[in-house]
Design a protein around this nucleic acid. Structure first.
Lengths: 331, 331
DNA sequence: CTGTTAGCGCCTTCAC
DNA sequence: GTGAAGGCGCTAACAG
């Protein structure tokens, strides 16, 4: 493995000049520049990143901490972050917390040990409660989850509003007695609950919510139990794609028909939501955009550490399908 | 940020002793060990990984190179690899090639620059053609894709056999005129094609295959075109989950009914395959297991660089559902 | 504009 | 059993 002094020797210059040329610093004569480039190429020189990182005190590494990449929402975020990061010569370290604050703390410690340049984080509810970027030795951009008053860069959906619109859509389509199944362990779930409550209140309706763990299995079994004690509501809302899937599976198990007996709606426009019969009405999140916005925000913050805290709010889009078809009031 | 000399000073010992204690080396007096541990704790000392990596020449980092994490198959692999890697104090760098040999080469170069401890790779067809682990400065474990004669550790499904079983299932259920849509850009797709051909030949039937790019969009439009020129076959097989989804979307577009007019089957037991009506018959891959086996194989190889090349073959499981329901010969 | 040199923080011989 | 000292390969002052 050739190293910098070999290149210097081959080009007949000092290591400093090699370093300068390779770092793209201005103020090097064209003649030296050419000789260094030629020598580096001839020797197939690759700078030792460990040495560079030790000396320069920068790692060009970004941490991405989410609950679970297997959640399609985070899968897409992850892909977007990686695309943009690599384009900018950064590496990405991906970590899954499973909504477990201990794992989260472990990975945040790891980020410190790695001396990462920045972190994109989807925090647990516990961590978000009194989260401040300033508590960390690296810039942090929150993604998907953020409170109104959180002092940190963030990229989120307009959760309250989107849930309000989705709930209103149900009400206007003749489903006033509806129930929200929401992921109580995340800020996002809570905000969607808020939007739901507001929409119900605006129409003078009685809200009903079921807090669940945001996994397919838990949502399914919670819904299964729920349907064992009638009366059944006229419509369901799921606060994310995993819960939505769990609800649908439960409805199939107990043989309640959508949309004849119950309407079904939720968040996340996953492929299957338009393949099942009937298609499911959802709020589509611009997931790739969210991830892209997050990494871009982080790169800006890295370049300008002192810039004002920013929040990017993206709008969810209501996609009406047959699972919430209009209906006259029953009973 | 406290460093090793601070700990040494605080403990009243030399940096060498601190290093020894923290590395868990034997032959340090209990008294020093205690003082060092106390000092490290008191100062919240974290070893600088960049310095350690430069000095030790090991990065404890693993590269994971796949075509696209958004393919649920690779999402799950990724999660498995990360779980096991972190448990063993390794980091993971994830890269997406999009089946593009140039990106693949770029990321493999990056792995070299990063001086990774090992790589888990799902190679493009082009790279696999004459792939040899020995050509790389780090151990490589192939995942999902591998030829019969490839000289490299690998973890794969029993592709030929699984396709054979799936095809036979169709034939025995009264669907002799079936067509395979396969991802021609991957070894996996080609091997599943092989199993398909073998099963058709064994029954004296005429095979028919359509090579597609393994994305939902391309599979959909290819299938759409396909259905514009009758006669239609009695059954379809998709060589992976993305293609399967594309086929189903196309069938919906042209209003061909499953299973009445055509049977539909494929690989990958994704959540939606049992939610659509009818449920889709598939070969389920033990995806998490595949990822887990790959990282474990890599860790073994790292520990024992000279051990014999290993191949782990996992069995796909046929899950029969209504999309391939038994039928009497038509016409 | 170019070269010399002093570390970045740690591990690991080597003496004691 | 313990400490002193020399690098790992590179970058960034500082001279010239």
């Amino acid at each position: 493995m050739a190293q910098i002094k070999d290149v210097a020797h081959q080009a007949g210059v000092s290591v400093a000049s090699v370093s300068r040329v390779l770092a793209g610093h201005a103020g090097v004569s064209e003649s030296i520049r050419q000789r260094v480039l030629a020598a580096a190429q001839a020797l197939d020189y690759r700078p030792d990143l460990a040495a560079r990182r030790l000396r320069s005190r920068r790692t060009d590494t970004i941490g991405l901490i989410v609950s679970d990449v297997r959640n399609p929402f985070f899968t897409e975020i992850s892909r977007a972050v990686e695309d943009v990061a690599y384009q900018n010569h950064f590496r990405v370290i991906l970590c899954n917390t499973d909504e477990n604050p201990e794992k989260e703390a472990f990975y945040l410690d790891l980020m410190r040990d790695e001396n990462v340049t920045g972190v994109i984080l989807s925090p647990t509810l516990a961590l978000l409660a009194d989260f401040r970027s300033a508590d960390y030795p690296f810039p942090v951009v929150l993604v998907d989850r953020c409170d109104r008053d959180t002092a940190a860069d963030a990229v989120v959906l307009d959760n309250v509003d989107a849930a309000y619109r989705l709930t209103t859509h149900l009400i206007e389509n003749g489903h006033p007695r509806n129930v929200l199944f929401y992921g109580a362990a995340s800020a996002t779930g809570c905000q969607r609950r808020e939007g739901y409550m507001a929409a119900m209140a605006a129409h003078g309706l009685e809200p009903q919510v079921e807090a669940v763990t945001a996994t397919v299995d838990h949502a399914r079994s919670a819904a299964h139990k729920f349907f064992c004690r009638p009366p059944h509501p006229e419509a369901l809302i799921a606060s994310n794609g995993l819960i939505l899937l769990g609800l649908l599976e439960a409805l199939r198990e107990v043989k309640i028909k959508v949309p004849e007996q119950i309407a079904l709606t939720g968040f996340d426009d996953l492929p299957w939501t338009r393949l099942v019969e009937p298609g499911i009405t959802v709020i589509a999140q611009p997931t790739y955009d969210i991830g892209q916005a997050a990494i871009e925000l982080l790169l800006q913050r890295i370049a300008q550490p002192a810039q004002a805290v920013r929040r990017v709010v993206l709008r969810g889009e209501l996609r009406e399908r047959d699972s919430s078809k209009k209906r006259n009031a029953r009973r």
